[in-house]
Design a protein around this nucleic acid. Structure first.
Lengths: 173, 173
DNA sequence: AGGGTGTAGTTCAAATTCGAACAACTAGAA
DNA sequence: TTCTAGTTGTTCGAATTTGAACTACACCCT
């Protein structure tokens, strides 16, 4: 853990701009969704994933993995969406413990009603700012990063990961 | 607000990968910081901004703007960091209402102790995944986006924005 | 000077998120 | 079959974040 490779100027620029842009964009998206449909970004993402899924339904754990949220976080939001009548819970036919989150017709309508405004914000502040080359680069960069993080071990949302062999996880304070 | 320009396949790819990567990265960063130093990412960002500031101090409002967090959110976190002895509050000499957040020596040490592990994560999952061209592209893209969002009106953190002329803000439910 | 408008930070209640603990069920080995 | 380990989803408490309301102060105009 010695002689750290610090970030070069360009690397630091890229990182700091990324962090700032991410927070700013999240604010904008959140603002637009709340004003336009009362949804949060997390809720919109859930509806979108369900909408793109076969039969418009998905197992809780898989959905949590796709939207990158904790299992308990998903339980909470599905509860909210259920109250709103946008999603229903069904017990999984093949697995008695399983729960399927199903997008309702009302959910589909809500999504269709909400999507245009959402896309407009994403375009205005990000997509439409980019040249075709930059768009390609962005897709490549983010896909690569996502792939690496999905592959690498260490998710807290994952299995308890009983320690074997060299269990060097949580360092001293 | 009709005939929406939907996202093309590449645009959708870029956006979805971006959203996923962002959440995944936030998880990793948060995980590492908590395990290694007990700090949250928000706290780390505050310390970092203060550290890079002249005299290692900054006005609350400016700091909130730089780390892209609400004023009340910053008040809370500065309170936490004060408890930990990493930051101190000083009344601003030039403005009686103002508060200066000042990084303490302990705060500097904490940051120096924590930075290597943090940088390692940022490198491993993002920076080191990129070619030099992609790094350049990333810096350009994110700077552009951040600039646009900083310039465009509509921050809720900003002034109350008394309505004049065409006051068409919050749409009907 | 006197007033009115705007700004700086904090307080407050509500919403959301996470991780750990838990209960129910599945699946592979003995 | 029976036992044991692993999964699945929920519940719980704690921490964090936000926007609105509020107090104190600063600045401009007459």
């Amino acid at each position: 853990m010695k002689d750290t490779r610090w970030l070069s100027e360009i690397e630091l620029d890229a990182w700091m701009a990324y962090v700032a842009a991410t927070h700013l964009l999240e604010r904008r998206v959140e603002e637009q969704l709340k004003a336009d449909s009362g949804l949060t970004h997390a809720q919109y993402e859930i509806l979108a994933k369900l909408s793109a899924s076969p039969e418009r339904r998905m197992r809780m754990t898989e959905l949590a993995r796709k939207v990158v949220v904790s299992k308990s976080g998903l339980t909470y939001q599905i509860g909210q969406l259920e109250k709103l009548g946008l999603v229903e819970r069904t017990t999984c036919p093949s697995d008695e413990r399983g729960v399927l989150a199903v997008l309702t017709d009302e959910g589909v309508r809500c999504l269709e009603r909400t999507a245009p405004g959402h896309v407009a914000v994403v375009r205005a502040f990000l997509i439409d700012q980019l040249t075709p080359e930059e768009l390609q680069a962005m897709a490549r960069i983010m896909s690569k990063a996502a792939a690496v993080m999905t592959a690498a071990p260490g998710h807290s949302t994952e299995a308890p990961a009983r320690r074997r062999g060299t269990g060097r996880r949580t360092a001293p304070g």
